[in-house]
Design a protein around this nucleic acid. Structure first.
Lengths: 221, 221
DNA sequence: CTTGTTATTTGCAATTTGCTATTTGAATGG
DNA sequence: CCATTCAAATAGCAAATTGCAAATAACAAG
């Protein structure tokens, strides 16, 4: 059957999101090869069936090899496909998204990575604008009922930091005392020794997530 | 580069969900060809790059050609991939899910389709058990904040029917008067002329969705 | 020690939700 | 033709949740 002979191109693309100045930013990478060599785009690459056990594994490999990153969370977003999105031919790209603390990205020496605020991450090659938009939307929804925004922060964080991460992800401000109550009732975090001082004011207590992965709740934050 | 030469198999699979006796059921189809010829499995097929504009279009085509169905909603679930899931080789399947009123399915003459309650839709070929489980979980979550369960019903339905559809999708019973209040506040439905009588009791008013597609809300049902 | 600043807690008021009782509309059967 | 029955639809109130704002705590700087 002809359909079995014409096999489309299969790639993965990863939307890297991070927090900077209380705003979500996208981390992009300058492309090394054609098409669109030199332009900023999502971190991505071909799926290698002979070495990747799954597209998830492919995304992990691409992040490691091209960006030197290993993530605490890497979730599948959705698959984008069609004959027009890539000049090399009919393709399907399984898109993933991940959140990383600003420090993780800044600490590396991978100079090809650039962090852009959402408003500036436009006009990207392929259909990467659409992929970024879908990732943002997914994160926004997921932020309302999961611990996802905590992964924008380092493993230890203060409650005000956590609230600002939620606010950035949700795109709206939250009532501080109600937020504390919710987080407390959800048993999401646990105290760790130490605190963080800011300028000259009362230091904030440090916390960490009680569970390592993303936790979903039934209620909304 | 070798990776560009070895291209994996690309397929689509659709999880058809419907309502019967106030329970979610999965609609499966007996496979015509190997592998697993004759066994019940998800409706699916190869992506045909030369005729499908996207994997979504491929899913629509497969539903039409193999099951004679055209759906009001067809949403992408996620992509399942790996070297072990299909004996034909390394493959990626973009899974979709759809909800259909029981009547739509029952009315067709497509005898290869079988409706099974969730508990009996186990031991399916490939990784279809996992795909079904993911679809059920996605629908359950999505039911809490969207009009999705309404698509388990015909275009016109009563409020008690709508509540039972939500209950089936959510897997828990809802308070009737609170449900009516919410649905009313969300402006989800509008009255249509006519009503449905049940045994000998007060007839229930008929409604239809105010908007044609799935609507998401911020609050929870 | 006083002031400034942010973290954290506390105490209601307002809103939302859950539950139960009441009312309504149509069919049934004397 | 009216009383009865059943499920739909509404109404009323108690309990739980949320939003707001004031009060308190901790630390640094002067």
């Amino acid at each position: 059957m002809a359909a079995e002979l014409i096999r489309p191109i299969l790639t993965v693309d990863v939307v890297l999101l991070t927090l900077h100045d209380d705003r979500i930013h996208v981390v992009l990478q300058a492309r090394e090869k054609a098409p669109h060599a030199g332009r900023l785009a999502l971190v991505g690459g071909y799926v290698h069936p002979e070495e990747d056990d799954s597209t998830h594994a492919a995304a992990v490999r691409v992040l490691r090899d091209k960006a030197g990153l290993s993530m605490r969370v890497l979730e599948q977003l959705m698959t984008f496909s069609g004959g027009q999105r890539d000049p090399r031919g009919w393709s399907a790209s399984i898109a993933y998204y991940t959140l990383l603390p600003h420090e993780d990205f800044a600490a590396r020496g991978v100079t090809s990575l650039k962090m852009l605020p959402l408003a500036e991450a436009k006009g990207l090659p392929f259909d990467h604008d659409a992929i970024v938009a879908a990732a943002i939307e997914r994160c926004r929804r997921r932020a309302a009922y999961s611990s996802l925004p905590a992964f924008l922060l380092p493993p230890e964080f203060t409650l005000p930091e956590l609230r600002r991460a939620y606010e950035a992800a949700l795109g709206r401000s939250l009532n501080d005392s109600a937020f504390r109550r919710k987080i407390d009732e959800l048993r999401l975090i646990e105290q760790v020794a130490g605190s963080v001082s800011k300028a000259s004011a009362r230091p904030a207590q440090l916390f960490r997530l009680a569970k390592s992965g993303v936790v979903e709740f039934d209620r909304t934050v």
